[in-house]
């Protein structure tokens, strides 16, 4: 999870490194710890350290972690010569290592030799049939070939064994959403909310899937989950605020013409709209705030 404080720290270290103010190693460590995908920056600064033999020797054993990090970043940037060099030096240091074997597989995957990569993963899996990262790699290998349904199948099998792996649940949910299988995606998000009940972004994603599915019951549940997102973020999540407004409008449309006593008596939507207007006045460019106000007025929220 990336908290607001950590996000600020990353920003600060990044600009510091960009202006040559040092702190490069701290930045790389933080990126690794928070599992961020900033491959171009990692490649640039990581190579800086790796090229400088004095700085490299200062790291001690951490040097090899850096090699791995830079190798993956280089693959992500399609800088295969750098990636090959890193993997080669890792292989020299740790022959027979499973972790380096995985990196080799990933390198094959990155260069587009899918079959070779698959073979490499299968060979490694023979010795360690329950290696989680390898199994996940196989799922993403199918995904990067555009074969989403195969990826879903592999992930489903994986989750039967490792049910507590919330990263995998998240990936599966995203795959289902991309396939427009919202019912299944909603199930995955339910699992995620059970695993990590305090992460507002799972609540938000669940609400969005429910809103997309439509229907009165789903819309009402979606509204509740948008509300819980607001609760968990202290009202700082603009998307959830908009979600409340949209849900209210959709619910009103569905229930139009039915008995009117059932009308939602809460002030939730007008409060959300009020916060939105306030936030836009403070932060957005000047011409956006009146636009939002008229839109919300048309939706009869303020």
């Amino acid at each position: 999870m990336v908290g607001a404080k950590e996000a600020n720290l990353v920003e600060r270290l990044e600009s510091q490194a960009e202006h040559g103010g040092g702190g490069v190693w701290e930045y790389l460590c933080l990126v690794r710890k928070l599992k961020l995908r900033r491959s171009d920056k990692v490649l640039k600064y990581g190579l800086q350290i790796l090229k400088d033999s004095k700085a490299r020797s200062k790291l001690g054993g951490e040097e090899w972690t850096l090699y791995e990090q830079v190798a993956i970043a280089a693959m992500d940037c399609h800088c295969f010569s750098v990636a090959k060099d890193c993997v080669k030096s890792l292989q020299k240091k740790f022959p027979e290592s499973l972790r380096v074997g995985r990196l080799e597989g990933m390198l094959l995957e990155a260069t587009g030799s899918w079959e070779a990569a698959e073979k490499a993963y299968d060979r490694l899996l023979e010795d360690n049939p329950l290696d989680q990262v390898l199994l996940k790699r196989k799922a993403s290998l199918a995904k990067s070939q555009g074969n989403t349904s195969a990826s879903v199948e592999i992930l489903n099998k994986y989750l039967e064994i490792f049910m507590a792996d919330y990263d995998a649940w998240r990936e599966l949910a995203e795959l289902y959403v991309s396939q427009q299988m919202y019912k299944q995606a909603a199930f995955c998000y339910e699992e995620l909310i059970l695993c990590q009940p305090t992460v507002p972004l799972h609540h938000l994603a669940y609400a969005e899937v429910l809103y997309t599915m439509g229907g009165l019951e789903n819309l009402q549940t979606a509204k509740k989950y948008y509300a819980s997102t607001i609760d968990l973020t202290g009202g700082k999540n603009t998307r959830a605020l908009f979600g409340i407004c949209m849900c209210t409008v959709a619910i009103n449309q569905v229930t139009k013409g039915r008995n009117k006593e059932e009308k939602d008596g809460s002030e939730l939507q007008s409060l959300a709209a009020g916060v939105l207007v306030k936030e836009y006045k403070q932060k957005a460019p000047k011409n956006l705030a009146p636009l939002l106000t008229t839109t919300l007025k048309n939706m009869k929220l303020i």
Binding site: R37, D76, S140, D167, L232
Partner: peptide, 19 residues
């Protein structure tokens, strides 16, 4: 929901990175 603990983004699911 405090300013220090507020989650602003999820980590970039690196185990499922595709190239």
């Amino acid at each position: 929901d405090s300013e220090d603990n507020r989650v602003v983004s999820l980590p970039g699911n690196l185990d499922f990175m595709t190239f």
